[in-house]
Design a protein around this nucleic acid. Structure first.
Length: 231
DNA sequence: TCATTAAAGTTAC
DNA sequence: GTAACTTTAATGA
């Protein structure tokens, strides 16, 4: 295994307060792995033996409801920690993580978690901060699912993905990883047919441009309006 | 308003 | 070609 470059971690919030030597130590304990699109990094309910940091690519985090269907609870973008079950006092993963695009992640054995949080300043606070933000976002999404009309839910879901992974293009902001209508229906608790119809309608109105597995938002403001107002 | 069913069209491999 | 993905229309809760 080639040595990992220290610049991989230096800019990232959980590691920003650390010295070079500390980052070196952390990297020397890490394992780097590549995941093809569609591959599961870990599965809900399995023993949480490692925790992860996404270096490149995008992940979908999926939970199975008591009813048996799968919903996408959130996406992970590069630079974020994930699979941090130890932070939740759990010894199994609470959800499944699947690569939405080809991805690269570092991982460490969970037994290092205690070392990291006690020995490395800023690591614990930053980790718990992102964890809190994520739980808040999930809460928000869930209440939204229960109370808002379908069009608003889908508009919110698209905006969330744009905020997480938006990338400017000539015509607008594109979602940087492959998304199918089915994926969006899994995020919003509706059907792929409804998603398809709405995206087609939005395309007619010049709000988005979409093709197979690819969405560009050409009028983000109009989408924001859809999440709040009727029509 | 939205899910379901069915069918046909389109694109990627 | 074929499988995967998308669209469209009809029907009914």
């Amino acid at each position: 295994m080639p040595k990992l470059d220290e610049s991989l971690l230096t800019g990232l919030p959980p590691f920003s307060l650390l010295e070079r030597g500390q980052i070196r130590t952390i990297l020397d304990q890490a394992v780097s792995r590549r995941y093809d699109e569609g591959t599961a990094i870990f599965r809900e309910g399995h023993d949480a033996d490692r925790f992860f940091l996404l270096l490149d690519g995008y992940l979908r985090v999926i939970r199975t409801t008591p009813g048996g269907d799968q919903i996408i609870v959130l996406h992970i973008s590069p630079g974020q920690l994930f699979g941090i079950a130890p932070a939740l006092q759990r010894d199994t993963y609470p959800a499944t993580a699947v690569a939405a695009a080809e991805s690269i992640a570092l991982s460490w054995p969970v037994r290092h978690w205690a070392d990291f949080t006690t020995n490395y300043p800023g690591f614990a606070t930053e980790s718990y901060k992102t964890l809190g933000q994520r739980l808040g976002q999930i809460q928000e999404t869930l209440t939204e699912m229960a109370t808002q009309a379908v069009e608003k839910r889908i508009a919110s879901a698209v905006l969330r993905m744009v905020n997480q992974s938006g990338r400017k293009t000539a015509t607008g902001i594109e979602i940087a990883f492959p998304v199918t209508r089915q994926n969006i229906s899994d995020m919003t608790g509706t059907t792929l047919h409804t998603v398809s119809r709405l995206l087609s309608a939005w395309q007619k109105n010049g709000i988005v441009e979409s093709s197979r597995k690819h969405i560009v938002v050409t009028d983000p403001h109009a989408l924001v309006l859809l999440t709040g107002a009727q029509g």
